[in-house]
Design a protein around this nucleic acid. Structure first.
Lengths: 226, 226
DNA sequence: ACCTGAACACCGTTCAAGT
DNA sequence: ACCTGAACACCGTTCAAGT
């Protein structure tokens, strides 16, 4: 736990985009979204904040690069599956698990529309939607529906984790707090919210997520049957 | 266009949570997400930044309150529809249009999981999913699938608008930039992204959004037929 | 070509002091 | 009870100066 014992020591290796991205990921994993600052990063890399700008355009660029490294790994790991349908489910679950472990990926992803991280996911999904036999002119809509759904869940999981970190809540405590607040809503105005409040803290996020994917896949199949 | 002509003038009305939220919405609409600061808000309200904290817990609270006001309006406007299916589509379109006009609502919404703004949407959707005849134990999954999809699209639209504002791009220019970057991807690795790049700048976001809702609704119906 | 680190122009939030 | 505004502890980013 020695702090900066060698603060003025020279780095052994020179800075590079990769080493900066790697250090950013470590920082984000350890301290969450707010943990990534140019000063903290410079400390960890034994350099000054200005040096980082030689290799990286700005913070958004850095965050997207860190996110992309994570997505690339997740997409490579989620290759297998016997049918297009199974591969789509595996890609989706790969995303879910990545964001479960690294919540910051969820918000970084949502803040970089059209960028490489998102295109990686779009590509995997699109190829399988195509293999599913969806008509050429319906492939975009089917694929972007899947992608939007995945991004939606990712964003929420990221936000949940963020709040949990800020308030030192675990998942359980957070959901119980939410459930309690739903139960205090007006009974005639919010019957549905109140009726599902109870299952909120016991439900399985991952299973629910997959159920949503299945719903969209069924919709795609039903459309093909027309 | 007189600026601060009366900067030291007393406010005519005293501060209130409502007036603060109202001023926040005006600021967010005019200057985007980054336009909402306690200093800018204090200026507009002829007060100091500290005064705002008497009525509002912190910035997250303020943003959620502003978001909630917008969602409440949208949900009240999207009441009509002959069938549950039509009401669901109208609720979804109401959200789409709200975020199209006020992009900051999309990101505020995504950052406040379990909070009132989201519950308002969940409730509307849930009531209609229930009316659709979905079995009791499948209602939560169907409703949250719809909600997650809506949140996903909302988040992307918000991010698109945010980038557009930062770079002074209009929608068209932004999408053309994205399409151009997709066309530069490796042809064997990214066949799908390249094949859809062309339609990217001419596609109709709103129609695509609705197509996704329809896909999920079909999935729900298919599940009921089991 | 790459790095340094002080400086700039901001933030959200707090809090003693006022009314 | 409510407001004031200076002060605190941060940010991302820039840039003259170094090597």
């Amino acid at each position: 736990m020695v702090k900066k014992a060698q603060s003025s020591a020279r780095r052994e290796e020179s800075l590079s985009r990769e080493s900066i991205v790697e250090a950013s990921i470590a920082l984000l994993d350890a301290k969450g979204e707010s943990g990534l600052t140019f000063r903290a990063l410079a400390d960890r890399l034994n350099t000054g904040p200005g040096a980082i700008y030689w290799h990286v355009a700005n913070k958004a660029d850095l965050l997207t690069a860190a996110c992309d490294a994570m997505i690339a790994r997740a997409m490579n790991a989620a290759q297998e599956g016997a049918t297009p349908r199974e591969i789509i489910r595996n890609v989706a679950l790969g995303m879910f698990d990545t964001i479960d472990e690294h919540p910051w990926v969820g918000s970084a992803l949502n803040r970089a529309p059209g960028q490489l991280p998102m295109v990686r996911i779009l590509e995997r999904l699109g190829q399988q939607v195509s293999s599913l036999g969806v008509a050429k002119d319906a492939q975009w809509q089917a694929t972007s529906a899947l992608l939007s759904y995945i991004l939606g869940v990712s964003g929420q999981n990221a936000a949940n984790a963020q709040i949990g970190r800020e308030q030192n809540y675990d998942r359980e405590t957070f959901l119980q707090t939410v459930a309690a607040s739903w139960l205090q809503l007006d009974a005639s105005e919010y019957p549905f919210a109140r009726s599902v409040a109870a299952q909120l803290s016991v439900h399985d996020d991952r299973a629910d997520f997959l159920a949503g994917i299945d719903l969209i896949l069924r919709g795609i199949e039903a459309q093909q049957a027309d």
